Amino acid sequence: AMMKPESRTALIDAVYLGLNKLKDAKYDRKALLIISDGGDNRSRYTEGELRRAVRESDVQIYSIGIFDTYASTPEEIAGPIMLNDICEMTGGRMFRVTDVAELGDIAARISQELRNEYVVGFRPGDLKHDGTWRKLKVKLNPPPGLPPLTVHNRQGYYAPAD
C-alpha cells in the first residue's frame, strides 16, 4: 500500500540477483517466482547474459505476468515474450493475469505444481566432458483413457567440463 510504481524497472538485474542468491539456498530444489509486466528499461545486465545465467542455473522459474493490453513502450511489448522464454527454459511456466484478484489462485496453482512434479533422470549416450550445451526433448505417451497431460521440462543442460 505504501509502494508507488515509478517509470524505471531493472527486471533483468533482479532475476540475475535472484538466481545468484539461490546458489546459496539450503535445499537442492529451487524455484523463483517473478511477478511483473516483463518490461525492463534500467538493467545493467543484458537479456543475453540473463538467458545464459538461466541456462546455467538449477532453478525453475515461474512468472505471473500482469500485462497492459495497450502496452506503449518496446519494453512492455517484449516483456511477455522474455518472461515466457526464461520460464520455459527452466521447465517452469508463465501465467497471465487479467484480473489482480486472480493472483492468489495462480500462486496456489504454482505451489501445487511444484509439489506434484516428477523428476526423471537419464544417462546421455554422449559421455564427452566438453562443456557444450545439449538440448533435451521430452515426449509423453499417455496410457489410453487418461485426460490430456502436459510436460514442462528444461530445454537442455551443459555437459560437464574437465
Rank of each mutant, 00 (worst) to 15 (best):
K128P: 03
M3G: 14
A53G: 06
V151G: 07
G48M: 12
Q112G: 15
G145F: 08
P147L: 13
R42G: 13
V59I: 05
L17R: 13
A107S: 13
D68S: 13
V15Y: 00
L149M: 14
G125E: 07
E49S: 13
P142H: 04
D37M: 03
P160H: 08
E49A: 11
A25P: 05
S43H: 02
A1C: 14
D85N: 10
G79F: 04
S111T: 10
V120H: 00
E102G: 07
R115F: 03
G39W: 00
M3F: 08
R44E: 12
K137R: 14
V97G: 04
K4N: 11
P148K: 04
D37Y: 01
Q60T: 12
L146E: 07
F122W: 00
N116A: 08
N116E: 11
Y45E: 07
K128M: 12
Q112Y: 14
G92A: 04
E88S: 10
L103A: 08
I77A: 07
L114Y: 02
G156P: 02
L19C: 02
P74C: 06
L127T: 12
R42P: 01
R42W: 02
A78T: 09
Y157W: 03
D37P: 05
R42L: 11
L32W: 01
A53Q: 09
I110H: 03
T132L: 15
G65Q: 03
Y157M: 00
P148W: 00
D99L: 05
R109C: 08
A71C: 08
R154W: 02
L114H: 02
T90K: 01
R134C: 08
A108L: 12
T132K: 15
I66H: 02
M82L: 13
Y27E: 14
E6H: 10
L22Q: 06
R29E: 13
P144G: 08
Y16G: 08
M89E: 06
E6M: 12
D40Q: 04
D126P: 09
T46F: 09
V151I: 11
N41K: 06
T98N: 15
K139I: 07
P160T: 06
P80N: 03
N41C: 04
L33A: 05
R96E: 14
L103H: 05
Y27V: 13
T69L: 14
M2T: 15
L33C: 06
S43Y: 00
E88L: 15
R52S: 14
R55S: 06
A101H: 11
A25H: 13
M82A: 07
K21M: 12
L11W: 01
V138T: 07
G121C: 03
R51D: 09
P143F: 09
S57A: 08
G104T: 13
D85E: 13
G18W: 00
V59Q: 03
E56H: 09
L114T: 03
R96F: 11
Q112S: 15
P147Q: 10
M2K: 15
G125I: 05
L33D: 02
N153V: 11
E117L: 09
R55M: 07
S63T: 05
P148E: 10
E75M: 03
P147A: 15
M2C: 14
E113G: 08
Y62E: 04
P80K: 04
F95L: 06
T150K: 15
P5T: 10
R42E: 09
K23C: 06
P143E: 15
N116R: 13
G92P: 01
